[in-house]
Amino acid sequence: MPVTAYLIVSALLFTIGAIGVLVRRNPLVMFMSIELMLNAVNLSFMAFAHFLNSVDGWMFVFLVLTVAAAEVVVGLAIIVSIFRTRHEIDVDELNTLKG
């Protein structure tokens, strides 16, 4: 299969994730969408690594996975602490920083 196929799948996944971040108001779902975007990028990294016979893409994938795991930990902690203080987690309600 040509590399284009992988890239099309990757682009589709990325778009789904981006739309998810923009339209959903539940932070948990938004997080999942962000994961989707990250993994879409991972997919394109792997595809290029395979077709270019380079190991660099692999390394980026591991890096992205690690960062994603750390980000989820921090993000979930923030969400839990927001829920404990405000008893709701609708992101549109969290607009205290309005100018």
């Binding site: 981006a18 971040v21 923009l22 339209v23 108001r25 992101v91 549109d92 969290l94 607009n95 205290t96 920083l97 309005k98 100018g99």
Partner: peptide
């Protein structure tokens, strides 16, 4: 200028995209 600062996280995300 402060009208830009809506406080809605999704607005910022849209701007980034």
């Amino acid at each position: 200028l402060r009208r830009l600062q809506t406080g809605y996280a999704r607005n910022y995300a849209l701007a980034i995209f």
